[in-house]
């Protein structure tokens, strides 16, 4: 089928990613109108530190969810890597970059361990990553005990070269974290949508048995997605440690809700087989901007921010579930322009 540019544009407008883009745009308009400080590039881009971890991790948790799994251990791995960087550098006396490398390898092993149980032992992903969450956050505490510093204080005083990760700004405006996020988005996009590996991830999610019969090592593919999400959690942990200049064992403890929200909001089916990196990236930004804009422009206490994020998730999934319901679609087609609901329904 050949598409004229107009048709593909039409399809693009109807897509879920376009809706997300509109929501993002709307957020900018509303927050900007309310408080002009919001649009100040320094303030806006400075807020990136608070949301960067969610953005990075959700990109790769998308892979896990496309295979039909779920990953609720990523938050624990963030803390685990952070404390490893701190302890290996301060108490182990190693170079900071070697410490980072060790942390990334440790996180990859964590992901591989959980992935192994999911893929090769057929344990439900939810249970494995639940146990993994306990295990890795527990191990993080034990690693923290190895340090001479009291664990509640956190390890700080990192060298400048390491702190540059979160201090450096391209052209004096764009923080390095934004570049990291952009690069990772491109990598994730190419990996998922343009390579053979990505096709395998989708096929395993749609029908694991068919994937197995067509010669795909589906178990290895499933395991690899957990390794990827573990590595992304490690990157997030390192960036966050650099920004806070503190290595603590529990810095990622509250991320789970936001990560899953971003992935689902981005259009990934929680049952697997369908998903999109661009959608996830946009959704993560929508959540991040919401969490940044509400306190700044509407003076909403940061402690209340779980409510709008929770509500956003509830509204989106309810709307999509209604749009997927044939009765509602038929009813709405009578009221709304034709084709309504097709975009949101799977």
């Amino acid at each position: 089928m050949k598409n004229s540019p107009l048709e593909s544009l039409k399809r693009g407008v109807k897509s879920w990613e376009f809706a997300l883009l509109m929501i993002l745009f709307l957020e900018f308009v509303i927050f900007g109108a309310k408080n002009s400080k919001f649009l100040n590039p320094n303030i806006l881009l400075g807020s990136v530190n608070d949301i960067i971890s969610i953005c990075i991790i959700s990109l790769f948790v998308t892979f896990v969810m496309i295979t039909g799994g779920i990953d609720i251990q990523a938050g624990a791995i963030v803390g685990f890597t952070s404390i490893i960087v701190g302890v290996v550098w301060q108490d182990g006396g190693l170079n900071i970059w070697a410490a980072c490398l060790i942390a990334v390898i440790a996180a990859a092993l964590c992901g591989a361990l959980s992935g192994f149980f999911v893929a090769y032992c057929n344990v439900q992903p939810m249970v494995v990553t639940l146990g993994g969450g306990f295990l890795y956050s527990g191990l993080a505490l034990l690693v923290a005990k190895l340090s001479a510093t009291e664990s509640y204080k956190g390890i700080s005083g990192f060298p400048d070269s390491f702190r540059q990760i979160s201090q450096f700004k391209l052209f004096g405006v764009i923080p390095e974290q934004v570049i990291i996020f952009a690069v990772l988005t491109v990598i994730a996009y190419l990996l998922l949508h343009k390579t053979k590996y990505g096709r395998k991830v989708f096929l395993v999610g749609v029908n694991p048995r068919a994937a197995e019969y067509s010669g795909i090592n589906s178990r290895l593919v499933i395991m690899s997605t957990y390794v990827l999400s573990g590595i992304s959690a490690a990157i997030a942990g390192i960036v966050l440690t650099s920004y806070l200049d503190t290595a603590k064992s529990d810095i990622g403890a509250t991320f789970t809700l936001q990560i899953i929200t971003a992935v689902v909001l981005g259009g990934t089916l929680s049952t697997g087989g369908k998903g999109n990196v661009i959608g996830t990236a946009l959704a993560a930004l929508v959540i991040g901007i919401l969490r940044f804009g509400l306190p700044l422009c509407f003076k909403i206490n940061t402690q209340y921010l779980d409510i709008p994020v929770g509500l956003l998730l509830l509204i989106v999934i309810t709307a999509r579930s209604l749009a997927g319901n044939s009765k509602v679609v038929r009813f709405m087609n009578g009221v709304m322009p034709r084709g309504w609901g097709k975009t949101a329904a799977h």
Binding site: I70, M126, T256, L257, I260, T261, V264, S270, T271, N301, Q303, Y304, L305, D306, I307, V309, G310, L311, L313, L314, I317, T318, S321, L322, N325
Partner: peptide, 27 residues
């Protein structure tokens, strides 16, 4: 209502209500 009637995946729906209820405690 969300899970049984609207047929939304339970993990996702209750993750959302978790944020909602937790926020209500603060309010």
């Amino acid at each position: 209502f969300g899970v049984a009637v609207l047929n939304i995946p339970s993990l996702i729906f209750t993750l959302g209500t978790m944020g909602l209820f937790r926020g209500m405690i603060y309010v």
